[in-house]
Design a protein around this nucleic acid. Structure first.
Lengths: 225, 225
DNA sequence: TTCGACAATAATGTCAACATTTAAACTTGT
DNA sequence: ACAAGTTTAAATGTTGACATTATTGTCGAA
């Protein structure tokens, strides 16, 4: 299961079996190895992964808290279905949270953190040239947004985005090639965001980020028709 | 434990013991019956509530997903500490989410739902007069905001607010008398919000709600110095 | 054939015992 | 008396068995 190690933005694998199972199942859900809407049978999964049902149930509860799984009492757990409506709702929530996050980041980020943002953007630029200007790799895009979110220093927003929404977005992107970020626009907008943060201009940062996410949402809405 | 039934905005008590325990512990945490920062010993709690540790652990995992509990592997679970910094962060997140929610509600709410908003405000007005104009009861305030949030028809925002943030805010208010909503301002602002929704004006609704929450946040920041 | 009731099967919910790790208590030496 | 190391106790992590509920399959009657 280490083949998906790149996916794990935040790791739970805290030496406890339940924590490892949480990461394993999360990655399997994100990649689609466990299909959307499919049932997570405790008995079958426990046998397949060679663990007892206790830690497995614990992992399922955690994934429930991340919105990756829906649980119905006495019936079991199913992987969430990423309908068009839900994806658009996720992006509306993301717009609200991440635009606020970047406004806070414009006030709270330290200089070394802003330097790191520049490094991430340079890496994106380099990767884009190598990929013949087609796409910004998803991991690179996540890294940038994650850095901005952490820069807000707001633990509540961090958790909502990094622990919950981003996993759903990763899942969507991983299972829909067309959902990848377009290269040129994305990179330009990232630069604008960093500029606003450097200027310590929360309002500019917020509107720039909001537009960036609205663009992404519009792209998705267009291509899912 | 039914004495706190009024607190349970959303109920889990789905006929399973784990679900009931989730509600019981949540209410005990909100009221402060289980103090902030105190440890939730599985063995002691299981004995006290006369249940086995299995369902209890499940409830703890769920409460972890609601941000009411912090869990450290091999060490156990502790009730979250509502520091001033955390409360302000919660209100920043709430501002972002609920201002977006009301903008969506201005587009999505049905007429019957808007009528219900009026009824809730009338009830607030009546209760305020009976209370010699001192306070709007917290339950009344929640009911109004919950109705608005549901009106957004955005399941992601609904969950983030109703399932996670509101519980933390209830906990804060319940344990800090000074954190109650001031009567006159709150009622006027609620009326403005309903007006904006009726006018189907998302921008006005958003700005009004944002100001409403910023006011509440400022009040808290002032009184916690 | 189709619908409904009943039986059989499998799944989730619950419990108590075991294993391992952490925290507390105690001893020992300076 | 204090500190360090060891020992003891208690807590969390894990497991397998049991109980209860839902689902599937079967039989029979309309």
């Amino acid at each position: 299961m280490s083949e998906f190690a790149v996916l794990s933005g935040v790791t739970h694998s805290s030496s406890t079996l339940g924590g490892e199972l949480t990461d394993t199942l999360r990655d399997a859900i994100i990649t689609g190895e466990i299909a959307q809407g499919s049932k997570l049978s405790e008995t079958k999964l426990a046998k397949k992964l060679d663990v007892s049902r206790g830690p497995l149930r614990e992992a399922i509860r955690r994934l429930e808290g991340m919105n990756l799984i829906q649980h119905v009492p006495q019936q079991g757990a199913r992987v969430v279905m990423l309908s068009k409506a839900l994806i658009l709702q996720i992006y509306d929530a993301r717009e609200a949270l991440e635009s606020k996050a970047v406004a806070l980041a414009a006030e709270q980020m330290t200089s070394p953190e802003i330097d790191e943002l520049h490094r991430l953007i340079d890496a994106q630029s380099k990767q884009m040239r190598e990929n013949s200007g087609a796409f910004v790799p998803a991991e690179s895009d996540y890294a940038f947004h994650e850095m901005v979110v952490r820069g807000s220093k707001n633990k509540v927003i961090e958790r909502a985005l990094l622990h919950e929404l981003y996993n759903l977005i990763k899942m969507f992107r991983y299972q829909n090639e067309f959902a990848n970020t377009s290269s040129t626009n994305s990179l330009v907008e990232h630069r604008q965001i960093v500029y606003a943060i450097e200027q310590r201009d929360p309002v500019l940062a917020e509107v720039t980020m909001r537009r960036h996410i609205v663009h992404a949402r519009a792209r998705i809405e267009r291509r899912m028709s």
